[in-house]
Design a protein around this nucleic acid. Structure first.
Length: 430
RNA sequence: GGGCGGUUACUCAAGCGGUCAACGAGGGCAGACUGUAAAUCUGCUGGCUUAGCCUUCGGAGGUUCGAAUCCCCCACCGCCCA
């Protein structure tokens, strides 16, 4: 990749929403330092955060130096941008733990060695040391309240009678601006990147750099990532899609990308893979020519999963999917069965209860997450929504020893994608 | 402080003494069709031992054979006047 084409690279990928003036020329010189901020509100990141993370990763591949700023201090407060209600304040110990968890993910995306080694810093390092009077005197005087209240994020909250805006949140933009100014001085960082909702905060930072250091800062924002139906990206049926295996298994992660719609798969390939333009366009053409093959979705799912979880997990995810969706479950060997069921929710059942007539599926379903109540279980069974080991179950079905696979487990499914493992407890252990 | 209006299931929102487990819309779930999709169509969406029963309509009392619906008190929200 040519070292000078960072902005051009992002442009064809559709990842540029706005840039400040002069940014393309500024980035033409290799070795620039840029940062993006992340809130330590959880011990992991979601695919929503992946947008900013990918900006940093691409930056580094273009010969620049990325800085990850963890909002260890600002996370204690919460950014009002794009939020309609006051944020819960985080406990400092929790923030510390979250910062550590997120660091592990960045280590997969960025190179922390070499001349452009990525750096992770926590704004608690400099913000917590500052005294209140010092902030007011040295930083606050550079901000005009008149200007601050005209910002959309603030104005919306001021108009909303129900929510209001606390002084704490109001001050957030000052702190973020100071982050940029601090990084400019301490790390020679001249560029801040983020989502489009961060543009205002970025401009404040550039302004502060000019006032405090008579220096020049730049900014770049990526478009907000929305699904084609306008809903928020990064949620699946089972909630948020996380980037750590503990929170979202590699199998589910792989499935998330595989289920991308035809309309958005091209965009997702551009944003979240390192494929070049020709490769992506070829995938899109293949997708269009033969939609049911889902070549583009498969390439996307494999590439994204490999990036976050490694190629071994890609193989496992694909094997599991093949077995669950098209394979004969009874034909799986014990090893593969164990892998497939590893991620699923599970319920234990005593082996003895499966003797003779066994246990009524209707009653049992209500004890699993597949059905919230017995009445719901009845509905599902009547609709033919439940299958046992891949075979559709009848309403008065019983679970017996004949259903147990490899002496260990029975696989239940509700609807198309809700799986549940019934683990048969070993009699001898009792 | 005074006057008025409101508080209904995940959300919005009807109901204004029995026919109300509560119209409708959205969302969610399931089925058919499909590509583990979209669109469309159908069903379900308080619980159960399901032709029935039980618990729900801001909270606590009361009137009544019977209340989400009427009365009283309390809490919260909104609008108007001071």
């Amino acid at each position: 990749m040519n070292q000078s084409d960072f902005v051009a690279e992002l442009s064809w990928r559709g990842m540029v929403h706005q840039t400040t003036e002069g940014l393309p020329a500024h980035m033409a010189t290799p070795g620039r330092v840029a940062y993006a901020g992340f809130d330590p509100t959880a011990d992991s990141l979601t695919v929503g955060n992946l947008v900013s993370a990918m900006l940093l990763a691409r930056l580094q591949r273009c010969g620049h130096k990325p800085i990850v700023v963890m909002g260890g201090a600002t996370g204690l407060i919460g950014d009002p941008s794009g939020k309609s209600s006051e944020r819960q304040l985080l406990d400092p110990a929790q923030v510390k733990k979250n910062v550590a968890g997120q660091r592990k993910i960045f280590e997969k995306l960025l190179d922390f060695t070499g001349p452009n080694a990525a750096v992770i810093v926590d704004n608690a390092e400099w913000l917590l040391k500052m005294g209140y009077i010092e902030v007011l005197r040295d930083i606050g005087k550079h901000f005009s309240v008149n200007q601050m209240v005209t910002r959309d994020s603030v104005a919306n909250r001021l108009e909303s009678r129900e929510q209001g805006l606390s002084y704490t949140e109001f001050s957030y933009m000052i702190l973020q601006a100071y982050d940029f100014a601090h990084l400019f001085k301490a790390h020679g960082c001249t560029v801040q990147m983020g989502g489009s909702d961060q543009y205002g905060n970025i401009l404040s930072g550039i302004d502060l750099i000019r006032r405090l250091s008579q220096g020049e800062g730049f900014g770049l924002t990526a478009p907000l990532l929305l699904k084609s139906d306008g809903t928020k990206f990064g949620k699946s049926e089972s909630g948020n899609v996380w980037l750590s295996a503990e929170r979202t298994s590699p199998y589910r992660f792989h499935q998330f990308w595989l289920n991308a719609s035809d309309e958005e798969v091209g965009k997702l390939l551009r944003w979240f893979t390192f494929f070049d333009r020709a490769t992506i366009e070829a995938l899109e053409a293949a997708q269009k020519a033969n939609p049911s093959e889902r070549a583009a979705q498969k390439a996307l799912a494999d590439a994204a999963t490999e990036m976050i979880h490694g190629s071994a997990e890609v193989a496992r995810a694909k094997t599991a999917a093949l077995a669950l969706f098209s394979g004969d479950i009874r034909a799986l060997d014990a090893q593969l069965l164990a892998e497939v069921t590893h991620d699923l929710t599970s319920t234990s059942i005593a082996a003895s209860s499966l003797d003779g007539d066994g246990v009524a599926l209707l009653d049992f379903l209500a004890t699993t997450p597949l059905a919230a109540s017995k009445r719901e279980a009845r509905d599902f069974l009547a609709a033919g929504a439940v299958s046992v080991n891949g075979e559709k179950a009848v309403a008065d079905a019983k679970l017996t020893r004949a259903d147990v696979l490899h002496g260990a487990v029975i696989l239940l499914r509700r609807g198309k994608k809700q799986w549940h493992a019934v683990r048969v407890a070993d009699e001898a252990a009792r």
